Amino acid sequence: MALIKSVRGFTPKIGENCFLADNATLIGDVTLGNDCSIWFNTVLRGDVNTITIGNRVNIQDGSVLHTLYQKSTIEIGDDVSIGHNVTIHGATIKDGALIGMGAVVLDHAVVGEGAIVAAGSVVLSNTVIEPGSLWAGTPAKFIKMVDTEQSKEINQKIAKNYLMYSEWYTQE
């Protein structure tokens, strides 16, 4: 069973039909929308500030989400996929975005709607990634614009697949 821990008077709020892996950890001021999946060894640590997650978001194995005390929050829109071993620290991720495996997104960065952050990239603090763009590298830099409809289709397919995967675990 996932660890759900209150701290400083805040208890995580979990939407309907969410899957929390057995060793996922949700602490403090965390709000999950509906149909989310939080995978194995993932930590959402809302002890020092707010983490708000939309609907149909999947946060894959080993990811860590945290903020700065009284300085940054995390806001994640709908239909977002966060790859394995991602670190998000006090950033905003808009609807339909994809954050690739092992990426790092730092405080006050904004990842636009339908944007893609490539695996292994480091998005520095205060970076603004335009909607529908692909960024990669360390530090992450603009690579190209992606086809909006194709990006939306791919990102929504990943989000739907992770909803399906999570259902496998509830059937056991």
Rank of each mutant, 00 (worst) to 15 (best):
A97W: 09
K94A: 10
T92R: 15
L65E: 07
I88A: 07
M101D: 03
I74F: 06
I76M: 02
G62S: 02
K71M: 11
I53D: 02
D95V: 06
N55K: 00
V111Q: 07
T50F: 15
T67V: 10
Q70H: 13
V64R: 00
H89C: 08
H108P: 15
S63A: 14
L106H: 01
H84D: 06
I53E: 05
N85Y: 13
I93G: 00
I76D: 03
L68H: 11
N85D: 15
L98I: 12
I59K: 08
I76E: 00
R56N: 13
Y69M: 10
I59P: 14
H108C: 14
V64P: 00
I82R: 07
E113V: 12
D61F: 08
I82M: 07
L106I: 01
G77H: 04
I74D: 06
D61L: 06
G54A: 02
K71Q: 12
L106R: 01
G114P: 06
G77Q: 05
A91Y: 04
I82S: 04
G96H: 12
R56F: 14
Y69Q: 14
D61C: 08
T87I: 14
D61H: 11
V64Q: 00
V86N: 09
E113C: 08
K71V: 09
G96W: 12
R56S: 10
G96Q: 10
I51R: 02
V80S: 01
T67L: 03
V80W: 04
V57H: 00
G77I: 05
L68E: 12
T73V: 10
V105T: 06
T73I: 13
D79T: 10
T87C: 14
N85I: 13
S81F: 02
G114M: 02
I99A: 12
S63T: 09
A91E: 04
H66Q: 00
T92H: 14
N58Y: 05
T73Y: 09
S72P: 03
I59V: 13
Y69V: 10
L68F: 12
N85T: 14
T67C: 15
I59Y: 07
V110G: 01
V105N: 07
N55L: 00
T87L: 15
N55M: 00
V80Q: 02
I99Y: 13
A103I: 08
G90E: 11
M101W: 05
D78W: 15
G54M: 01
R56K: 12
T92D: 10
H66K: 01
V104C: 08
K71S: 09
I51G: 02
A109S: 11
G114C: 04
V64D: 00
A91G: 07
G62W: 00
K94S: 11
H84M: 03
V105P: 06
G90Q: 09
K71A: 11
S72I: 02
H89W: 08
H108F: 14
G83V: 00
V110P: 03
E113S: 10
I76G: 01
H89Y: 09
G100R: 11
S72K: 03
G62L: 00
V105I: 11
K71R: 12
G90C: 12
G83W: 01
N58A: 06
A91L: 06
H89F: 07
I74H: 07
I59T: 13
A97N: 06
G77F: 03
N55A: 00
I88S: 03
